[in-house]
Every structure is written in structure tokens, then in C-alpha cells.
């Protein structure tokens, strides 16, 4: 087994973030607190995680740092709605023209196995309401892979390996972590959300060591 990846988790002090990213054999985490003046060095990390509920004013302030991180081959995971323009090549847009009750998640393309072993109904339903909480949609870069879309074919989970030298894994504010955000106590939903995240972690881990080997 290779060494675990090192991940930085952006933390803006919101309740509930601690405990969502427990260390595993694949990844160990450090919290990066939002603070000014910005003195940030993320070059030693493999992965930068921007969790649900993050500070996108701060992320815009460190846009150049993120771009340098990606240029060096890093992996960016943003599981939030980035309303400021800090994610290279991809845009998130909020939208309330569709009803949440009508949302059904659909796999479009899954070359890296993010949805392996996942019961998609765990995303669609939880205790009779939605089992996941994607909001709005992504306007992806032209060469990005759309993994999941909604009822109206709008991208919700994408992988972009072309806009930068690194990898971007982006959700339309759909929370992904080793746990869930207490929006559900339905076991099927918790398993689905955590399962996708673990599949993503395994993909990132395998990709890094395949790259180093090559």
C-alpha cells in the first residue's frame, strides 16, 4: 500500500465540518482556516478540498495559489457552489427554476468508477424527500467529463483533466465527504454519498501513484 495522500480542507469556521473528513489509509487531512492577511502555502498537499458551505470570497483571494497548485499537478475537489470566478474553466450557476422534488440523478459517464457500487436511489430519495442536495448546475469546460446530471441534463458532478495540468472534481454544491451533513439519517442515502466520496478518494490515490510510476 502506498502512502496516503495529503489533503488540505478549507475551513471557514462553520458548524459541522469537523469530523467529515477522517484520516484513512488513502488520505490524511489538514484544516486550512480562512484568515487574513492570506499566508498560504498548499504546495505540499496532493489534494485541495473545498467543502460544502465554504468561503468563496477567500477562494477568489487565493485564486492564483489554486492555479499554481493545479499547474503543479494537484487535485482540486470543490463540493460547493463557487459563485466567484476562481475555478479555472468551469462555472457554477444557482437556479431555482426547477423543483427539488422533480430532481433525479443520472449517470452520464463514469470512466473512473465514482459510481461503482452506488445505489443511485440513495441520492434520489431519503425518507421520502431528496437524498442529496445538489443546487443549481455546472457549466463545464468543453473537455470535462460529466459523471452525473440532473433530470434536465444539467451537469452536477464533473471531472476536468484538461483545463489545467491538474485534476478538478467539481459538484454543483452537492456535499461529498466520508459522512453526510446531517441532512439525512436514511442509511441508503448516507451510504451513497459517502460511497461516491470514497470512490473519488481511491481514484485520486490510484492516479497519483500510477502517474509517479509512469
Amino acid at each position: 500500500m502506498h502512502e496516503p495522500l495529503k489533503a488540505a480542507v478549507i475551513h471557514n469556521g462553520i458548524e459541522g465540518l469537523d469530523g467529515l473528513y477522517p484520516d484513512s489509509a488513502f488520505m490524511v487531512y489538514n484544516r486550512i482556516s480562512v484568515a487574513y492577511p492570506v499566508q498560504l502555502d498548499i504546495s505540499q498537499y496532493d489534494v485541495l478540498i473545498v467543502p460544502n458551505g465554504s468561503d468563496h470570497v477567500f477562494m477568489e483571494c487565493i485564486k492564483d495559489t489554486v492555479e499554481a497548485f493545479l499547474a503543479a499537478g494537484g487535485v482540486l475537489c470543490c463540493f460547493d457552489g463557487w459563485f466567484t470566478p476562481w475555478v479555472p474553466g468551469n462555472r457554477w450557476v444557482m437556479d431555482n427554476s426547477r423543483r427539488t422534488i422533480d430532481v433525479r440523478y443520472k449517470v452520464v459517464s463514469d470512466p473512473y468508477g465514482f459510481m461503482k457500487g452506488i445505489d443511485i436511489d440513495g441520492l434520489n430519495f431519503s425518507n421520502g424527500i431528496s437524498g442529496w442536495w445538489a443546487c443549481g448546475y455546472i457549466q463545464p469546460a468543453a473537455e470535462a467529463i460529466v459523471v452525473l446530471e440532473d433530470t434536465w441534463h444539467r451537469p452536477l458532478l464533473i471531472v476536468d483533466e484538461h483545463s489545467t495540468n491538474g485534476t478538478m472534481i467539481l459538484s454543483a454544491s452537492a456535499p461529498l465527504s466520508d459522512s453526510t451533513y446531517a441532512t439525512t439519517d436514511d442509511d441508503a442515502s448516507m451510504q451513497a454519498v459517502a460511497g461516491i466520496y470514497r470512490n473519488i478518494v481511491e481514484f485520486m490515490h490510484a492516479k497519483k501513484y500510477a502517474y509517479e510510476k509512469s
Binding site: 468563496h56 470570497v57 477568489e60 466567484t84 470566478p85 457554477w92 450557476v93 444557482m94 431555482n96
Partner: peptide, 14 residues
């Protein structure tokens, strides 16, 4: 009604 202007998304804060 609560409306959303798409132009507000992807706009710089500063």
C-alpha cells in the same frame, strides 16, 4: 417572488 440573476454567478466579489 425570489428570482435569481444568472449574471450574478461567476462574478468577482472584489
Amino acid at each position: 417572488a425570489f428570482a435569481i440573476d444568472e449574471a450574478d454567478y461567476g462574478r468577482s466579489w472584489n
